[in-house]
């Protein structure tokens, strides 16, 4: 369980996070979504006690992270796969982290196998590819078998096979009843992984919703193909719909697909295709975050 309450983090005059509140509960993958610079990483760093909030608080399992004695057993985090000392071997890197929480070599070997790095255990970290470092970071996060997991942009630098692996891993961890928070600036990625999403822009909460509600909310229109375009159009317009013609098909707003079908049947008009269309999640995301992105671009251009 992760609780962020009225979290504000200022760096000088810049409010990186501005009164942000949300909760992540166990059992689903929560996508933490926003354009670059929206405050996602800052929020995660505040949750992990790395950055002190200017005001508000961020709690893990009801507690402040910085006070936890052996945090690896409660929380696993992958912030930046490159934030490692390159001189140690992969296994020694994990041993050092594990030792600070009283975790032994046996578990280190287990997680190395779990993330598919057993063969590279003796290699120096600086010799690993970014994708392998991401796996090493995931291994570190899993060391204490924690109930809460935070991943900051985990698919960056991964190849397609690695991306599929990490999606499966996150869904698996959530299915085991863990709390999983994953940040990304790519809606398409979240659409495949997350069950709920938290959208932020300029440090503020824009939307917190389930993936399905978001898709419903951005339902757009119904595409209708019929041999009697003019006839159906007048029927629908009489029923109060706004109708336009696009490439020989009718695009109908403010009537549900079922109502259109009923009207067509009542008037004996054949319908060849009836497709409810919603904005893609990508479009929905861009629409939601447009303001915050525009503002920043304008500011830079000034």
């Amino acid at each position: 369980m992760i609780e962020v309450r009225e979290l504000t983090k200022r760096y000088g005059a810049v409010r990186a996070v501005d009164g942000l509140s949300f909760e992540v509960k166990p059992g689903y993958v929560a996508g933490f979504l926003g354009p670059n610079g929206a405050g996602k990483s800052t929020t995660m760093r505040a949750v992990l006690g790395l950055d002190a909030p200017t005001s508000g608080e961020a709690l893990v399992n009801g507690r402040r992270y910085a006070g936890i004695k052996r945090p690896m057993f409660e929380v696993g985090a992958l912030l930046d796969a490159n934030a490692v000392h390159g001189g140690r071997s992969a296994v020694n890197h994990l041993r050092c982290l594990a030792r600070s929480n009283g975790i032994g070599l046996k578990r280190v070997v287990e997680v190395l196998e779990q993330v598919g790095l057993a063969g590279a255990a003796k290699r120096r970290v600086s010799a690993l590819s970014l994708g392998m470092k991401q796996r090493l970071g995931v291994a570190a996060a899993l060391l204490g078998d924690p109930g809460v997991l935070l991943f900051d942009e985990p698919v960056n630098g991964l190849d397609p096979e690695g991306i599929r692996w990490i999606r499966g891993l996150m869904r698996g961890l959530a299915a085991e009843g863990r709390t999983v928070l994953v940040s990304s600036h790519l809606m398409s990625e979240m659409a495949l992984t997350a069950d709920r999403i938290i959208v932020v822009g300029r440090g503020r909460l824009i939307l917190e919703s389930s993936m399905r509600d978001l898709a419903d909310r951005f339902k757009r229109d119904v595409l209708v193909r019929t041999p009697d375009v003019a006839g159906l159009r007048s029927v629908l317009e009489n029923a109060g719909a706004s109708v336009s013609v696009d490439d020989g098909a009718l695009v109908v707003r403010s009537l549900e697909a079922a109502d259109i079908a009923d009207l067509a049947a009542r008037h004996g008009i054949a319908v060849h295709e009836l497709t409810p269309r919603s904005a893609t999640l990508e479009d929905a995301y861009l629409e939601l975050t447009e303001d915050s992105v525009e503002f920043r671009t304008a500011e830079v251009a000034r």
């Binding site: 760093r45 992990l48 006690g49 790395l50 992270y65 910085a66 006070g67 936890i68 004695k69 945090p71 690896m72 929380v75 985090a77 912030l79 930046d80 490159n82 934030a83 490692v84 000392h85 390159g86 001189g87 982290l97 600070s100 929480n101 970071g137 570190a140």
Partner: peptide, 19 residues
């Protein structure tokens, strides 16, 4: 300093947050 140059300090402080 070997932990500050590369960001390892953040990984370390996540594992051992009591500074």
């Amino acid at each position: 300093t070997s932990e500050y140059g590369n960001g390892m300090i953040r990984t370390v402080l996540v594992a051992a947050p009591r500074r």
